[in-house]
Amino acid sequence: MPSETPQAEVGPTGCPHRSGPHSAKGSLEKGSPEDKEAKEPLWIRPDAPSRCTWQLGRPASESPHHHTAPAKSPKILPDILKKIGDTPMVRINKIGKKFGLKCELLAKCEFFNAGGSVKDRISLRMIEDAERDGTLKPGDTIIEPTSGNTGIGLALAAAVRGYRCIIVMPEKMSSEKVDVLRALGAEIVRTPTNARFDSPESHVGVAWRLKNEIPNSHILDQYRNASNPLAHYDTTADEILQQCDGKLDMLVASVGTGGTITGIARKLKEKCPGCRIIGVDPEGSILAEPEELNQTEQTTYEVEGIGYDFIPTVLDRTVVDKWFKSNDEEAFTFARMLIAQEGLLCGGSAGSTVAVAVKAAQELQEGQRCVVILPDSVRNYMTKFLSDRWMLQKGFLKEEDLTEKKPWWWHLRVQELGLSAPLTVLPTITCGHTIEILREKGFDQAPVVDEAGVILGMVTLGNMLSSLLAGKVQPSDQVGKVIYKQFKQIRLTDTLGRLSHILEMDHFALVV
């Protein structure tokens, strides 16, 4: 994948999101292997301009796509893939009243899908469409860049269908997702969380590099694949309309690839034109409109599966009536509230959605109805927002919020430890010299600072030695090549209790 991002070429006709291997024109390309080798690009942008032909009021008969309808489940399912879809609609009884809503608040519980998330729908649909058009064949390999849930859905379907599955996901995604993927037989590649989507090191860039190296491999490409919004247009939206008897006044959905909100909203605009569509985008993402909503100094966020630093091709923002931004604290607070007060075992993005819903639905009156999409299960986040310690460490809970008995030293300040200034190293000294210094002084790690004293990161003896043994660096290389740029900081005025929580999850903390 090139470091400079080429513009994806656009073909003359058809839909841009065809499933299957992508040609340089962004659509299915038939021909000899030699032709494909000559024409197939190194990668295709996940934010390529959409060429979708959908228009409100256009006859369904003019759609270029294969459409399906929700099917009634048999008493005995032939395999677990038949437990994807037909998820329950559940009334939220307490939270709406707590925040003064007059309307009825309903939750579409997508964590009841077989793999635990709304992404099971698009995973199965992308595979079925690729099999139907002859792209996927027995023994082929599926590769997908994902925040985890699409990966789980694909790995689940691949396990049943017999495909090899490789999932490329950023490091910030939970260990629970990784464990589930491994249990399903998927191979996992992790990428830096802070890598831009168009960087060769991003999950998108690495996935395309693997595709170019592995024979008979395919990126189904949830960011561009029409099967993504079509899955929701054909099934999720129809289920909502049936469950609500066609009567709903507002739908609120958090947005990642945009397939969920695009597919549902398009069908609702056709069948229930008075329904307002509300999009939820986390602070630090750029999906919301108008652009002024996205202006923030924050560039990272903890909530998973929603928000991006690019506009995915499948996201149709014209069908969203209003956007709201959400933050991590309210997302996790509301997710825990949904679990504790409503018994809905949902993930953090569901918290984002409901946090926005109780604001947006203030305009609705008694007798009206708001539906929220709860995308995934708490299963993926047992060591994250479900953990009091994690919430404390991230600053989303305060010590006084917890009532468990603490040891005698818990409320003492870090400054009472009488710490001395640490050994520091410059980023320009060599790895070999740094190892000598650390061994001589008896230290395992040291902060790396520039000549102005600005902290650049941390270097550890173990990481340097393993990097040297693996051949990633040489003793003569500058130590700046092996620094940890993500590390926890703590102030002298913070409590030892807070430091204790940090050290339970990290090997060190830097006192500043």
Score class of each variant (00 low, 15 high):
Arg125Glu: 08
Glu9Cys: 14
Glu239Val: 03
His65Lys: 03
Ala186Leu: 01
His65Gln: 05
Leu28Asn: 10
Lys25Gln: 15
Glu110Gln: 05
Gly256Lys: 01
Ser227Phe: 10
Thr260Ala: 08
Leu105Arg: 03
Arg190Phe: 00
Lys102Val: 01
Asp249Thr: 06
Arg224Cys: 12
Gly31His: 09
Leu81Gly: 15
Ser3Tyr: 09
Ile127Thr: 09
Ala8Arg: 14
Ala157Arg: 03
Ala159Ile: 03
Leu184Ala: 02
Gly85Ile: 04
Glu110Lys: 04
Ser174Val: 00
Ala186Ile: 03
Pro138Glu: 08
Asp234Ile: 01
Arg190Trp: 05
Glu213Ser: 06
Val189Met: 11
Ala183Arg: 02
Gly85Phe: 07
Asn149Ile: 00
Ile80Lys: 06
Gln243Lys: 11
Leu124Met: 14
Met173Asp: 06
Leu230Asp: 08
Arg161Leu: 03
Thr191Arg: 00
Val206Phe: 08
His17Val: 15
Arg209Cys: 09
Gly96Thr: 05
Asp245Leu: 02
Lys97Cys: 01
Asp129His: 09
Asn225Leu: 00
Arg58Trp: 15
Lys72Trp: 03
Gly31Met: 04
Pro215Asp: 15
Val252Thr: 10
Gly148Arg: 00
Thr5Ala: 03
Gly256Tyr: 00
Leu220Lys: 00
Ala186Tyr: 00
Cys165Trp: 02
Pro46His: 05
Glu104Ile: 03
Gly11Lys: 09
Glu201Pro: 10
Met169Tyr: 03
Thr68Met: 02
Lys30Tyr: 10
Val118Leu: 12
Cys244Glu: 00
Ser73Trp: 13
Lys75Thr: 10
Glu144Ile: 08
Leu251Tyr: 07
Lys177Pro: 00
Arg224Asp: 04
Val204Gly: 06
Leu56Val: 12
Glu9Tyr: 02
Val180Cys: 06
Lys102Trp: 05
Leu77Gly: 05
Leu210Asp: 01
Glu201His: 09
Ile142Val: 15
Gly274Ala: 11
Pro59Lys: 09
Lys119Trp: 00
Asp234Gln: 06
Lys177Asn: 02
Gly100His: 01
Thr235Asn: 12
Asn228Thr: 03
Ala107Cys: 14
Ala69Met: 08
Leu28Ser: 10
Glu176Ser: 09
Thr262Met: 07
Ile219Arg: 02
Arg182Tyr: 09
Ile152Glu: 01
His67Arg: 03
Val255Tyr: 03
Lys39Met: 13
Glu144Tyr: 02
